[in-house]
Each structure stands twice: as structure tokens, then as C-alpha cells.
């Protein structure tokens, strides 16, 4: 099987020792999108929310305070960079580490909101992320055991799929789902309470969706149906 039937022809690679980043149009597009959003977030201010006060005719403006804003912006930028990296990496284990980084940063973005319910969501998300390390790293290790390599460009050349590879990749998918896939659910929890700071929550949704799309590519690389 050739990798070019999935995301298009390989436009280039960046070798960093054993870790090789590769660019197909598919990867490149998602990479560029993640970077573009990150750049936007880096220069944006947050929105504020105007709420009517009870009993008077005045309005109250809900804003993100300075320290919180700085921290969340920092974490959001890191998250965006990690997402961009996860889009182009050609190494299974490298990908898991990117996903974990995204996960921990997402927890941080949610946890920076000073509300009990949002903190609760952050904690539960953290629990899932911790549980998710088992299928994530375990799945990657099983794929390594089954194939003898964790470089996607090598795995794609193996002409068969063993049951261990399939099992490992299912575990891997579950792990990704736990680390970042469920993130929107908890981030929405923060949004439901009308916490301002939409650019930062955006990066959570963005990373989660993009990582899932990329994971599907990886699953198709590992499991060859033909």
C-alpha cells in the first residue's frame, strides 16, 4: 500500500533522527489550519459578555481577568502548536505524546476558569485523560510489538494486518478519544455557563476534531483492509 492513496502524494519530509515528519496535502492543510488559528488566537482579545443586572437598569460586563487571560492564551498557543505538530508527525509514539500534550493543555484551559462546575468538568476530564493513557500508550506499544516499528512510513509498507495490529489500533483510537476526543464535551460545560474566552475554547474543539481526523488516517495506515 502506498501512503499517497490516503492523503495525496508526499510533498516532503523532515527527518529528525528516527522521527520523520511528512507532508501530504492532507497533513499540510491541517497543519496550516492549526497554525493559522494559533496565530489568530495569539493576537486576539477575548469577547466580553453584557448581562442585565437584576433590579436596576444597569448592565454588567463579564470579562476575563488579566492573569487568567495570559495563562489561557499561553496554554492555547501551546495547544495550537501541539495540534499542528500532531498533524504532520510520521511517528506513532510521537503522535501519542503530542496528543497527551494537547490533553494536558486542554485541562489547563478549562481549569483556569474560576467556577466550581467548570473546575469539576476539568477534573473529570483529567480523570479521563489519565485513564486514556492506558489505551493510548498501550495501543502504540502493541502496534510496535506487532510490527517491529513505530514509523508510519514503515508501517504503511507492511502488506498485511495482524490481529494484534488491529487490536492495538482500536486501543489507540480509544486512547485518543479519551485524551482529546471528549474534550469538547467538557469545554462546552464551560461555555454553557457563559464563561468568556471563546478563542481559547475554540482551540480545544479544533485540536479535538483535527486530531480525530488525523487518527482516522493513522488507523487506515495501520489497518489495511485489502
Amino acid at each position: 500500500m502506498d501512503i499517497s492513496i490516503l492523503g495525496g502524494p508526499i510533498l516532503g519530509i523532515i527527518p529528525l533522527g528516527d522521527i520523520v515528519l511528512y507532508f501530504t496535502p492532507f497533513n499540510l492543510f491541517m497543519f496550516a489550519a492549526a497554525l493559522a488559528f494559533t496565530a489568530l488566537i495569539a493576537i486576539s482579545s477575548t469577547e466580553s459578555q453584557v448581562e442585565a443586572e437584576f433590579g436596576t437598569l444597569k448592565n454588567r460586563e463579564v470579562k476575563v481577568d488579566k492573569a487568567e487571560f495570559k495563562l489561557r492564551r499561553f496554554l492555547a498557543i501551546v495547544c495550537g502548536l501541539a495540534t499542528a505538530g500532531a498533524m504532520v508527525t510520521g511517528d506513532l509514539f510521537d503522535f501519542t505524546l503530542f496528543v497527551t500534550l494537547i490533553g494536558i493543555v486542554n485541562i489547563g484551559i478549562v481549569a483556569a476558569v474560576k467556577e466550581i462546575d467548570v473546575l469539576d468538568a476539568a477534573f473529570q476530564y483529567g480523570l479521563i485523560a489519565m485513564i486514556g493513557t492506558l489505551p493510548l500508550f498501550g495501543g502504540a506499544a502493541l502496534v510496535l510489538a506487532a510490527t517491529g516499528t513505530i514509523s508510519l512510513l514503515q508501517i504503511v509498507q507492511i502488506p498485511y494486518t495482524t490481529s494484534l495490529m488491529a487490536f492495538g489500533s482500536i486501543l489507540f483510537f480509544l486512547g485518543v478519544a479519551g485524551e482529546t476526543g471528549v474534550a469538547p464535551f467538557f469545554a462546552t460545560k464551560a461555555e454553557m455557563f457563559r464563561t468568556p474566552g471563546s478563542p481559547f475554547l475554540l482551540i480545544i474543539h479544533l485540536s479535538s476534531l483535527l486530531v480525530i481526523v488525523r487518527t482516522i488516517e493513522i488507523l487506515l495506515i495501520i489497518n489495511k483492509p485489502f
Binding site: 496535502p25 475554540l202 476534531l209
Partner: peptide, 18 residues
């Protein structure tokens, strides 16, 4: 590639959201 459409659609949802 069709996968690219998948990515584009995912980003479309994000943009709609934000």
C-alpha cells in the same frame, strides 16, 4: 484526497462554532 474534505468539514464545524 477525500480525507482532505473530512478535514475541511471538521474545520468548518469549528468556524461555525466560533
Amino acid at each position: 484526497s477525500l480525507l482532505l474534505f473530512f478535514a475541511i468539514y471538521a474545520i468548518h464545524k469549528i468556524v461555525e462554532h466560533n
